[in-house]
Computed example of a mutant assay.
Amino acid sequence: MAISTSRPQARNQSSDDGVARRLLDSSAQLSYDPLTEVDWDTPLDTDFHGASPEWSTLYGTAYWNEMTDAQRKALTRQEAASVASTGIWFEMILQQMVLRDIYAKDPTDDTFQWALTEIADECRHSIMFARGAKKLGAPAYRPHRVAVELGRFFKTVAFGEAAYAAILVAEEVLDVMQRDWMRDERVVPFVRTINNIHVVEESRHMKFARDETRKHLARAGRLRRRIHAVLIAVAAYVIVTSMVNRKVYANAGLDEERAVREAKANEHHKSMMRASCSGLMEFLSSVGLLTRPALFFYRRAHLI
C-alpha cells in the first residue's frame, strides 16, 4: 500500500489515502452486525432453497431433471453451505495477507485504518458464514488437502498486486452469485439476509482491492507482472474449483459419483461462471494481468 507520512493532519489527504477515507466513511454509515441482523432463531424451513437453483452445479443436467423438488432444495442448501465454508477458508487467507501488508506501517493513515476495518468485517463474515452453514444442516466442508496447502503457500509468498488481485478474484465471483441469491424469494430468508450483508460490505473491499492492485502494479516491472499474473490465475483456479465440495451430493441424498460426473460436464454452470467473471476479466486485462499463461488457468476454471 502507498501510504503518505508527510501530512500533519488527517484532513490533508494524499491522493493514495482518499479512497481509504471514503471507504471508512461509508463503513461508518452502512455496516451490519450479523448477530442481530440475521434471524438465527427461526427453525430452518426446508420448503426453501439455499441458493438460486440456476446456480446449482447440477441445474440443467439430466440428473437435475430426475430429482424431486425436495432433493433440489436439499442440494442447493448443501451447495450454499459449501460456498460459505470456502468463503471462510479464503477470508482467513485474506486477513493474513492484509495484516502482513500493513505490518509496521503508519497506523494514523486512513489506509492502515481501513485495512483493519476490512479485517474486522471479514471476521464477522466468517462467523456469519459458519453459523449459516450450520443452520442449513451442513457439515464442515473443507477444501481438499492440496488446496489447503496451496493456500498456505500462497498466503506466505503473495504480496502487493498478487495478494490484492487474488482477493478481488474471490470476492468478485461470490458477489455476482450472491446478488442473485439475495433477491430470490425461493431462497430461505436468513440466507438472503446473509448474502445482502456480504454484498454491501464486500463492495467496499472490492473497491479497495482494485485500487491497491493498480497502485502496486504502477511500481512493478515486466517480469514481476508476468509471474504474479500466473500466481493470481492459479489462486483463482484453486478457489473456484474448491467452492462446491463433492460431498454435498451424498449429503443431499444423491449418487455422488454420478453427480460429480454430470456437474463437471454441465455447460450451463460453466456459462454462469463465465458471465459472473466478465467484469473481473476486463479489469485484469486492463492492468496487464491477463497474460497467455494466466489464461490457461482461467479457462480451466471456466472463468473465461
Rank of each mutant, 00 (worst) to 15 (best):
A275P: 00
A265V: 01
A250R: 15
V234Y: 07
F159R: 12
S286I: 10
V230W: 00
R192G: 02
V230A: 05
V200L: 09
R258L: 08
I232W: 00
V173S: 04
H228I: 00
V200N: 11
R204V: 08
E262V: 10
F190A: 01
M243C: 13
A265K: 15
S278Q: 14
C277E: 07
V248E: 01
F283W: 04
A233K: 05
P189F: 04
L223Q: 15
R292Y: 09
R226C: 01
R192F: 00
G288Q: 11
G253C: 10
F159E: 10
V199M: 09
V199T: 12
H216L: 13
F208M: 14
T193N: 10
R292I: 13
H268F: 10
L254W: 05
A218K: 15
E185R: 14
R219G: 13
S242F: 09
V234K: 01
L168E: 05
D255Y: 09
V287T: 09
V157H: 03
V169N: 05
I197N: 08
N196L: 00
N245D: 13
A162C: 03
L295N: 06
E282G: 09
E171K: 01
E262S: 03
L284T: 04
I232F: 03
R179L: 05
N196V: 00
A265S: 15
I197A: 05
N251M: 04
Y237F: 15
N196G: 10
V240T: 13
R219K: 15
C277R: 02
R204K: 07
A166L: 01
Q178M: 11
P293N: 01
S285N: 14
D255W: 06
K247P: 12
M281K: 03
H205P: 02
V244S: 08
A235D: 12
G221T: 03
A166E: 02
N245Y: 00
A259S: 14
D175N: 13
V260E: 11
R292D: 09
T291C: 05
T213K: 04
D255L: 08
R219T: 13
L217Q: 14
I239M: 09
I167C: 05
D211I: 05
A263Y: 02
F296Y: 14
F190E: 10
T213N: 02
V188Q: 12
E212G: 03
I239K: 05
C277F: 01
G253S: 09
M273W: 01
G288T: 06
V187H: 00
Y237D: 02
M243W: 14
I232E: 11
R261K: 13
N195G: 11
A233P: 04
A229G: 08
A166P: 06
R204H: 04
I194S: 03
D175A: 09
Y298S: 07
